[in-house]
Simulated assay, not measured.
Amino acid sequence: MTTTSASSSRRRFSGAGRPWIPYAFVAPFVILFLVFLVAPIVVGVVNSLFSRQSSGLGFGGSSIEFAGLDNFFRAFADRDFLLGFPKVLLYGAVQVPVMMVIAATLALLFDTALVKAKRFFQFALFLPYAVPSVIAALLWGFLYQPSVSPILQFLSSLGIDANLLGPGTVWWSIGNINLWSLIGINMIILFAALQSVPREMYEAARIDGAGEIRTALQIKLPMIAPAVLLTTLSSVIGTLQLFNEPQVLQSITSNIPSDFTPNMAIYAASTLGKDPNLSSAMAVILGLATLIVSLILLAANRRTTKAASDGI
């Protein structure tokens, strides 16, 4: 092929003369991003700055008036809404590390030659993630009710009276649903990251006398630190936005009030309280709290990574 024909082919396949082609490929993502992410945030922020005021004695209709930060002051004065934050943070402080340890352990096991039928077990662990969270909560809610649960009935026959929806156990029951649903996807992400680690590093570690556990802790996990951070961040964000599981279980237990979590308090203010402006302010506060926690985790990870690199 001559130089002229080669350059002509490059021009033909590079889209010369049609600069709109790259934008056409990007346009669907941009449109969906603006419609389903940016637009709801803008609408929520705008709604939080207004309030509905009744005119006269309430028979003359209502009007929308600019309220400034009044809705935010009302949200911060709502004690039940604020108490939801330490609840979910304490819940996440237990649930997230447990889930990450189990997911990382499973990923490391699948990365060795010890586990047979890896595809089958990976699919079996991933399958609960494909079940919608509402359906998962309904399934486990069935198993949590003593009158219909075969597990609790079996334990009762042994003289063990277990109340999985009691005041002291309901959080553990919710955490069990989340672990069942999310361990598989986190394991898959970590396992995929392990596949990109050069195998020569493992061979060098074995030559130096490192066993499987030492190789996993000192080589494999540090090499997939970005994937660990990604899964941890997504788990923390999901914890702060906890809603589906307690909302479903609320129908079968009195130990889950309508303001059990911040997201449930937002839903209650919008539906039961019929105050969408207040709920928008609460949603903005929850979004900012999630952003702050994420930035703190990123800063802590950056500091740890820098300290480790300086130590080397």
Rank of each mutant, 00 (worst) to 15 (best):
L278N: 07
W172M: 14
A103Y: 07
P167A: 07
Q241P: 01
I151W: 11
S196W: 08
R10A: 15
S147Y: 11
M282C: 01
A216S: 15
Q153V: 01
L106C: 08
Y129C: 00
D161P: 00
Q195E: 12
V134S: 09
A300I: 10
G287C: 04
L143Y: 13
R74A: 12
E245K: 11
L34P: 04
Q95L: 11
A281D: 03
Q241C: 00
I285D: 06
N255C: 00
A192K: 07
N178M: 14
S9R: 15
F33W: 13
L217F: 14
A67E: 08
A289C: 10
M264D: 01
A104C: 09
V101F: 13
T215H: 11
A137E: 03
V170A: 04
T304C: 08
L240D: 03
S173Y: 10
I183A: 04
F33N: 03
L278M: 10
I41R: 08
E65L: 09
G17H: 09
M99Y: 06
N263G: 12
T232Q: 05
V134F: 08
L69V: 12
F50G: 00
V98L: 15
L32F: 14
L108E: 08
I183Y: 03
L114Y: 15
L230Q: 14
S149P: 10
L138S: 07
I64Y: 10
A6S: 12
L138M: 12
S55P: 00
L165G: 01
R199N: 09
G17F: 09
I185L: 03
E65T: 15
A192H: 06
L108N: 09
A104Q: 03
S149D: 05
G44W: 03
S270E: 13
E200T: 11
I188C: 00
R52A: 13
P257D: 09
T215F: 04
D80G: 01
S234N: 15
L182S: 12
V96I: 10
V45S: 02
K87D: 03
S279F: 00
Q195F: 00
G209I: 04
M223Y: 12
A216H: 05
S280I: 05
K306D: 07
F110E: 06
S147G: 07
Q122W: 05
T305M: 11
T271P: 00
V30P: 00
F123R: 14
P128H: 09
N47V: 02
R302N: 10
I41G: 11
V30K: 02
L89M: 13
S54H: 10
F29P: 00
T253A: 02
R302E: 11
F154T: 14
A265G: 09
R18K: 15
L295D: 04
L89R: 07
F260L: 04
I21L: 15
K306Q: 14
F110R: 01
M187T: 11
G311M: 14
S54T: 14
F50Q: 14
N255A: 04
I31W: 09
I160T: 12
F191H: 13
V46S: 05
A204V: 07
